[in-house]
Amino acid sequence: MSAQAAQIVDWKAHLPQGAGAEELYKSFKEKAEALTVKVIRASSKEEAEKAIVAEMKELKIKKAVGVPMTLVDVQAIKEALEREKIKFSLELDRDFIEQAEFGISEFDLGIAELGTIVQDANSVHKRLVSMLPPTHLAVISTKTIVETFADSLEVIEKVYNGNPSNFLAFVTGPSKTADIERVLTIGVHGPGRLIVVCVD
């Protein structure tokens, strides 16, 4: 296992003043929704877990994958999903992840002005889960929504003390292309559907 994977980073300690403010959440939601992202607000861990299960049920998902998380209890989610006969794997099994219809992972920051979510994606597990399945559900803490892209860079500089993580992913809406006749088409190589659950 690489050195960086084991490193535990504390994002909350380095957020700018005012991060997570109500108007930042509002702007985040508005910008993300304009990009077809579904934004769900959860006041508690349990509410978030319920919302995640509900989303998968609604989409009639049979196979889903996830990674270990801190904002929600993935074991509780797994048990709830199993009751719904939804297969949910937390294993780093490349081919299973590729076959899955739904992936869930945790993101570290939100950007209000853009509806963007940011993830330290040094973990290959996180990357596969957030890239390969056609739907991705990202869990973020409402408190970590900062105002601007430049703010997010400042946080990153502080969090990693000037040595940014090997792989940082900024995600703004679903995967898309307009390469044929400039017609916007959703869902090329990455997920065509993006859901963000903001946990208070």
Partner: peptide, 23 residues
């Protein structure tokens, strides 16, 4: 903003022999 902005600052994890599960 584009859907993805990827910042690479070093050799991130990868699966051994493309398939893993060893990292």
């Amino acid at each position: 903003l584009t859907s993805y902005v990827t910042m690479i600052s070093g050799p991130a994890e990868t699966l051994k022999d493309k398939v893993g599960p060893e990292i």
